[in-house]
Amino acid sequence: MVSATGVRALIDERGAEFEGYTFGFLDDMAKREIRRTILKAVAIPGHQVPFGSREMPIARGWGTGGLQITLACVGADDTIKVIDQGDDASVNAVNLRRLIAKTTGARETLTTGEATLIQTRHRIPEERMTAAQMLILQVPIPEPLRHVERSVAAARAMHAEADYARMWLALYEDVVRNGEVTAGAGYPVMVNGRFVMAPSPIPRWDIPKLNQAETLFLFGAGREKRIYAVPPFTNVQPLEFDDYPFEIEAFPNMSCRRCGATDSYLVTSPQADGSTLSVCSDTSYCDDVLAGRKVENQW
């Protein structure tokens, strides 16, 4: 935490951009509460810990959970990056990044490798993250059992008793009806062999990255007032049947139109002339490949 004189010094040094605001926008008590919640979440991987979600200057559902975690963790020496579905340049990403930087003096970056702290919506970067970095995911629906159990109290009891028969039943029904588990974004995972967790709506492509990673993953749901975590080197396994194994998305014979990469998650958009355009979802990775930088640490 930066002391009062520290904040004063920062304002003097980097201009008066956050004059009038607390360091990191949140008041100290809020930051303290969120940090304690994070500690508990890290101690029980995959377990949703309730916290007093604060009013933020953006609407609930726009990443308030992730933003609160970021603001509680960021220091003046951090370098921050904000991703919105792989893209650093969306209005939401730009505004979140600006808010974080202005109220803390942290440096902004668009490059995965440079960032110490990354807040993201719906993607995990292609470039392998390190132990020195932290990924904060914005979560719309933290409860993986929401679709199989309407009662919040009953769902919590199911977590407490590790009773996931209903979740498995939903997957079975999916296989029976559709011939496969159709869950695309937010495929349910088992964390540390104990808790079924909603990994936030990341594509299947990103699910294996959660397993045994060097990086700390924090998940924040502002509207639902929950924080949970996957600490470094934790087992994270997608729920799968022996005869219907989990598979990531495949992009056969496709490459990024912009950088030519064939080993990244592609997004496809229809064009005016009826054709489709596929490009890397992760713009930082795309830029790196385009600039001829070798990204050796791909997951």
Binding site: A165, W168, L169, Y172, E173, V175, V176, F241, D242, D243
Partner: peptide, 19 residues
């Protein structure tokens, strides 16, 4: 839930993992 699924629920609870 389908008739088969209802029966399957008890098997899934007993950790059957092959459809």
């Amino acid at each position: 839930v389908t008739a088969g699924g209802n029966v399957a629920e008890r098997l899934l609870a007993a950790d059957w993992r092959r459809v």
